[in-house]
Design a protein around this nucleic acid. Structure first.
Length: 111
DNA sequence: GAGGTGACTGCGA
DNA sequence: CTCGCAGCCACCT
């Protein structure tokens, strides 16, 4: 358990994101301690789609709420489809009310 | 062992 | 307002 790779740590945090909510790479990076290295979070997501159990990578967006990594899914529409299925409104590859649906582990998990 | 890459972010022009 | 540059660190070749 202590030998968890950086990837696994990212997966665990992402899996904690409740349905209908979204988070950002920077928020997860900051929570893991790798603040300023949001790239590592996105990089970890690159292998998330083969992780088990599956990781809701579609709930992880960039700082602007854009579906930046949608092309890394099986299909670009998959990400938006999953979000809409959970009640998240998506328009022009961006999540509406992003700041309202924003889920920050450093805050939500702190309580 | 060294170099290159990347699903990001923040700041300056 | 938009565009560009540099920093960040783990993984792959």
């Amino acid at each position: 358990m202590e030998k968890m790779s950086f990837y696994d740590q990212v997966y665990q945090v992402v899996r904690l994101i409740p349905a209908g909510r979204v988070s950002s790479y920077g928020a997860i990076a900051s929570y893991l301690g790798t603040k300023g290295s949001a790239r590592m979070v996105g990089y970890a997501m690159n292998a998330a789609h083969v992780a088990n159990p599956s990781v809701p990578a579609h709930r992880v967006l960039n700082r602007n709420g854009l579906l930046t990594g949608k092309f890394h899914f099986e299909t670009p529409d998959k990400m938006q489809c999953l979000l809409e299925k959970e009640g998240v409104e998506v328009e022009n590859d961006a999540v509406k009310y992003f700041k309202t649906l924003y889920w920050d582990p450093a805050i939500e998990l702190e309580l």
